[in-house]
Deep mutational scan, measured.
Amino acid sequence: MDVFMKGLSKAKEGVVAAAEKTKQGVAEAAGKTKEGVLYVGSKTKEGVVHGVATVAEKTKEQVTNVGGAVVTGVTAVAQKTVEGAGSIAAATGFVKKDQLGKNEEGAPQEGILEDMPVDPDNEAYEMPSEEGYQDYEPEA
């Protein structure tokens, strides 16, 4: 019985440690998101679009440190934060509304985080759909 109880105690310690790591990862992701939003706020009209992409990228980098179902929630929060940063930029006159959601080359930025393969159960990952990809044929 002692062996059984000791095993359960060790398992509990492992769960607590994993929860603490997840909590730490979420806190880091939130900190990076805040950094990115402050970065966007300090940019001029020309830099705002690039700044919004930076927020998304920093958040995406930190999301990889967070495991399990938390990833889905962090990704949703990050996307809403990026959308909010863009709205703030438009409201303050840093950028025109028609410039939001495009990178410096004018290509749409939507789907940055949505296409990231995420499995809350950590069982399997699927690649994003290939609808947006084109076949590449090298020139002879």
Rank of each mutant, 00 (worst) to 15 (best):
V63Y: 09
A89W: 11
E123Y: 13
K12C: 13
T22K: 00
S42T: 04
V3W: 04
A124N: 01
K6A: 11
S129D: 09
S129E: 11
K45T: 05
D119L: 14
P120N: 05
E139S: 13
Q79C: 06
D121R: 04
M127K: 06
V70A: 05
G31S: 12
E114A: 03
T64M: 10
E20M: 11
E83T: 12
G51P: 01
P128T: 11
E61Q: 11
G93V: 03
K10V: 12
A90Q: 08
L100R: 05
A140N: 14
A85R: 03
Q99A: 13
K23Y: 09
E130W: 13
E130I: 07
V95T: 12
Q62G: 08
Q134H: 08
E13N: 07
Q24R: 14
K12P: 00
D98W: 14
V95N: 11
A91F: 14
P108T: 11
G67F: 13
K10A: 03
V16F: 13
E28A: 11
P117C: 11
T75M: 11
V37E: 00
K10D: 01
G93E: 04
M127E: 10
L113H: 12
Q134F: 09
G84F: 13
G51R: 06
V3C: 03
G41L: 03
T75Y: 15
P138C: 09
S42R: 11
G47F: 09
E123S: 08
V15H: 00
E35A: 08
G41S: 08
A91N: 04
G51F: 12
E57S: 07
G106T: 08
Q24L: 07
G41H: 14
A56P: 01
N65Y: 11
A107N: 07
N122P: 06
E131K: 10
Y39S: 08
A76S: 08
V82A: 12
E57D: 09
T33K: 00
D98I: 04
T44H: 01
V15P: 00
V66A: 11
K97R: 12
G47L: 13
T81S: 07
A30W: 11
D135T: 08
A11Y: 05
G7S: 15
K43W: 15
V95S: 06
V74A: 04
K102G: 15
K6F: 04
A29L: 09
A107E: 11
K10L: 08
K6S: 03
T81C: 09
G68Y: 14
V26I: 12
K12Y: 14
Q62M: 11
P138G: 12
K10Y: 12
A85D: 02
K10M: 15
G51I: 15
V95L: 09
V118A: 09
Q79H: 08
V66I: 15
K80A: 11
T33Y: 04
A85Q: 02
Q79G: 05
Y39A: 07
A17G: 06
K80V: 07
G25I: 11
Y133R: 02
E123V: 07
K10E: 01
T54C: 14
A107K: 07
A124Q: 07
E139N: 11
K102P: 06
T64N: 07
D2Q: 15
T22I: 13
A85F: 07
A29N: 01
T72S: 12
G7W: 15
V52C: 03
V82Y: 08
P117A: 08
T92E: 03
E13Q: 06
V48G: 01
T44R: 02
P120E: 06
A85T: 05
G7M: 13
S87H: 14
I112W: 09
V71R: 10
T92K: 02
A19E: 00
K32Y: 10
V70C: 04
I88Q: 02
A76V: 11
E20S: 04
A29R: 04
G84Y: 13
V118S: 09
K97D: 15
F94Q: 07
E46N: 12
K34T: 02
K97T: 07
V48C: 04
V71G: 01
M5K: 12
E110M: 10
A76P: 01
G84E: 08
A85S: 04
N122C: 04
G25K: 13
P128C: 08
K34M: 02
A89H: 04
E35M: 15
T81K: 02
P117F: 10
A76F: 09
N65W: 10
V63R: 02
G51K: 13
P120Q: 08
A76D: 03
E123T: 14
L38G: 01
D98E: 06
G36C: 09
V3T: 01
N122L: 05
